[in-house]
Amino acid sequence: MSTDTGDQYQEILQGLYGMLERFPTRNIDLQEQTDLVADMGLDSINVMELLQEIEDRFDIIVPLNVMSDVRTVQDLATQVQRLIRENS
């Protein structure tokens, strides 16, 4: 990962933490490996809200079908970074 890409990833990750903290987190420390469903307990409605927030924040559009490959915060950040790159 180049420095620029790495910086961008960190920026996305911090943005995601900020958004995720507003959901019920079961008092866990959010980390890259935190599982959105198994650890955080997000339901499908939470996921939908989260996606809409992500789209507005990063001005991208996230197909719901990519979410089947997303388990952890890291997976989500990687997908967001990919979509930002594709959009630019």
Binding site: M48, L51, E55
Partner: peptide
């Protein structure tokens, strides 16, 4: 297998925003 995107329920403005993206 299509890419599908939910827009906010009954919200034409949100649909417009997403189509624009």
């Amino acid at each position: 297998g299509a890419d599908f995107f939910p827009f906010r329920h009954n919200d034409p403005e949100d649909l417009r925003k997403r189509l624009r993206r």
